[in-house]
Design a protein around this nucleic acid. Sequence first.
DNA 1: CCCGAACGTGCACGTTCAGGCACAAGCGTG
DNA 2: CACGCTTGTGCCTGAACGTGCACGTTCGGG
Lengths: 249, 249
Amino acid sequence: MLTEERRRTILERLDQDGKVVAAELVDLLDVSEDTVRRDLRELSAQGLLHRVHGGALPSPPPLGGFAERLALAPERKAALAEAALPLLEGADVIILDGGTTAAELARRLPRERACTVLTNAPPVAIALASHPRAEVVLLGGRLLKREQVTVGAATVDALRRVRADVAVLGVCSLHPEAGVTALEREEAEVDRAMVDAAGEVVALATADKLGTVSPWLVADLADVTHVVTDGDEAAIAQLEQAGVGVVRA
Amino acid sequence: MLTEERRRTILERLDQDGKVVAAELVDLLDVSEDTVRRDLRELSAQGLLHRVHGGALPSPPPLGGFAERLALAPERKAALAEAALPLLEGADVIILDGGTTAAELARRLPRERACTVLTNAPPVAIALASHPRAEVVLLGGRLLKREQVTVGAATVDALRRVRADVAVLGVCSLHPEAGVTALEREEAEVDRAMVDAAGEVVALATADKLGTVSPWLVADLADVTHVVTDGDEAAIAQLEQAGVGVVRA
DNA sequence: CCCGAACGTGCACGTTCAGGCACAAGCGTG
DNA sequence: CACGCTTGTGCCTGAACGTGCACGTTCGGG
């Protein structure tokens, strides 16, 4: 393994996990502890990471649009995103919803993956701007500030002109009977258009969203191909009974 | 095997695997190590790959990315943005271009200002998401990764359906005779649509952009209502002589 | 306060590099 | 055809680089 390649791997790892431990890198990279330390020292000198005893942390606190929500249970969102990746393997055209989990997924899209990603979320678009092969299409519309997604007729209209292989939704609420629901009417409209435009629908739902219901319907459970969740087995069983494929994070 | 053919193979290999190792290329191409190193050196000089000890990695995305430009002379950009604010006072509907200077302007828009802002730049949209009164409309389209703006038919089309009071362009090049020009064809197309859609046109240009010309025409100087710049008096005089209102930052 | 883990430094070894030189093949010119 | 020029290649040598090991030092939790 080339030196610089190894250092890139370290930075990638740091970006994904939010930290790196020297001892773990020894195993991962299959080099001596000395080399790891030298790498960390060098990267730190370049300002690319913040060196601490035993490992390193990201140099500037992970910058990005909505850092507040991003800080909320980041490791669970990361796990969800990671678990959802295999579901996208064959897809050429992917629709990505807004939300922090979807943004996490965008950041983790393998660099060698060539595909077209449609999204209505500026943070997702920015995350994908550094991806070397993805073609990114932003769906225009009025910006919903709290959610940082575009909504409205223009967004829905743009989705009507697309056939995607898969849509990934970071859902607000997911209930075995009520299906996928959202807090905002306009967001639900757009999400519904996404479901209609895609062949498969993947729903990302952290445990706290399972079994809850919000006012606006996005999709019946029958429209959802896979649910990716870290919920407990009871909730998962309910979903599976309803005929949905569940992926455990 | 011909020299160029061999180098092509190296690049192919690099694209495929994400890296090439000098020692492996010796076997693959059946030439001496020296020749491989010479090839790598030459390709590196052409900017087609990134040479490292023991092999090569893909050349990093051409510098001048959004994140890098952000750090470039921030105080001058802030001054320009501040100086441009009074020009927007009466405007209800504002078109904001991409670029770091425009993003700075978005951040400085007074919180009590109620207006509608149209932009094709996700970073600008995110900056405005924290603004309490601005209605933000994002123009959809394909994302130009380096510039972090959307371009293409969809973007231009959306602009055709709008009448704005003023468009603010963070210009690439501004020349007393050639007018406003841009480096990217597609960006120029969108900027031109912005100019057409707006009653007034404000161009933001740091000193280093005055007197320069880029390949793609955005607007004649006659179409520009005001230029905001921190350039020297000589350059400013030239512009004023051409009939443009100049605001000094 | 103590002890183990993490750290920096100096050193040795093998690998990789750059530049100089020689040789051969392709090329245009007289 | 002979000639010299250019280009591409391989080999050589000294220098630079990257890595692992050994040693003594510092750090931080119990």
